[in-house]
Design a protein around this nucleic acid. Structure first.
Lengths: 237, 237
DNA sequence: AATTTACGAATGGTTAAACCATTAGCAGTT
DNA sequence: AACTGCTAATGGTTTAACCATTCGTAAATT
């Protein structure tokens, strides 16, 4: 008949209050919370309890805590760092496999390329072409340039994500790349043909984006990721 | 010349030790940590410091803390709950627009439907058809069944995500749906034709999934989301 | 015998006051 | 002008005690 009364622990209540204030905009990024000895008075709790609350907020990525005379709790710009960290935990625990990551990427890259094609400005296109040039340079270096090439490849994909203008794509892809990288480094046998093929794909994607051809960009990007994933499956199996 | 010495705070050290033990498998899900008063001795720290560490581990989703005589810190099966929570925070805070959410959904639904078509078993297909029947029932109820229809629609999409077997899709789409729902409820003007059209789409998607036709499922799902988003843009503009 | 009640013990939750460690700014010195 | 050392404010940690919740068990009741 009646609803269970929610018995909040004191520190949870503090976390919620501060989190809501941040979400509402009452507390703005860059501003600081009062000192611990002041805050504990405002909330009417002990310092230990307050510190448990602050640790939680820190772990959520909502505040950063600094020591020293000008130290304290600084409200942070919300970012995807903790999300990425969390994803990394899942991966390490084998809850998310390399295959899962690759599949997920396959689902998103096409859409990202299409959006980028619709929205890229002149500056964006110039920066893409700059990255392509860098990639080509690394490719010419032979084996010792491979690592750098892969990183540049990743940068191009991230640049496309940014041009999509969609913070969700940017955040989620950032996390995926950050975590997929370790797999590549440790397990994937690279070779010259694969890199060359990748480079050609990238050139085609950039060309389609530059021309504003969304559907063509989508198709090429999707094919690019698919081919890459197929290679990976083959080598891993 | 020398590398900066990393001055770990005591609680961080504790977090790392316990986290590593969990990741390595030394501490298995379901097992319990010693009581706080015992643990603090083992680590050689005070109880307050230990509790800060436990709060962090709890916030990471690695342990669950229970009170009472048989209480304590239980090692949890790693799951995506906190990742979802984190994504929700990002969505709320970054003022991710409805359009961003819709675009992102557009990027993923096609791939999800295709994977579901490849992987759905007999039971999965039966449960999809059960959901369709429920949806149809709500549709017949007229206006008062609309809300229920929308919820069922969402359940069908979530079921497809689960059938994709990819924890990333499941996690991310769960967060997206959870957050897009509030928008729909508050801002979107539904009408009978739209719902009917949605229902037809769903039937077609389920048919394609049942037949194991991945590419057809992809196309229909993509078209479905696109048509829906277009309608939304029109009504919001 | 079965059920209910009351209590004890173990565990997490919270408090209080003190002291340690770090750091920005200032005052004095060179 | 540059260096040096002090001061004060802030987070980091410790200690010891008590409160609150919960499970098992023993006693009381039916």
């Amino acid at each position: 008949m009646f609803k269970q009364v929610k018995q909040n622990k004191a520190y949870q209540d503090v976390v919620e209050q501060i989190q809501e204030a941040i979400m509402e905009g009452t507390l703005k990024p860059g501003s600081m919370l009062p000192a611990e000895r002041e805050l504990k008075e405002q909330f009417g709790i002990s310092r230990g309890t307050l510190r448990e609350a602050l640790r939680v907020l820190e772990q959520k990525g909502l505040i950063e805590i600094r020591t020293g005379v000008a130290g304290g709790s600084i409200i942070r710009e919300v970012n995807s760092e903790k999300l990425s960290e969390n994803l990394g935990l899942l991966i390490r625990n084998r809850a998310v496999s390399l295959r899962d990551l690759a599949e997920f990427r396959e689902g998103m890259e096409g859409g990202v390329a299409a959006l980028a094609a619709q929205r890229a400005g002149e500056q964006d296109i110039a920066s893409l072409q700059g990255l392509l040039a860098v990639a080509q340079g690394h490719l010419k270096e032979g084996r010792k340039g491979w690592d750098a090439f892969v990183r540049t490849d990743e940068q191009i994909h991230m640049a496309l994500a940014r041009m999509s203008g969609n913070p969700l794509f940017i955040t989620v892809l950032t996390s995926v790349y950050h975590n997929i990288h370790t797999y590549y480094e440790n397990y994937l046998p690279w070779n010259k043909e694969l890199l060359q093929e990748n480079f050609t794909d990238l050139c085609n994607i950039v060309a389609a984006v530059s021309a504003g051809e969304a559907e063509r960009a989508r198709e090429i990007a999707l094919g690019h990721v698919r081919r890459f994933n197929a290679y990976m499956e083959e080598k891993q199996a």
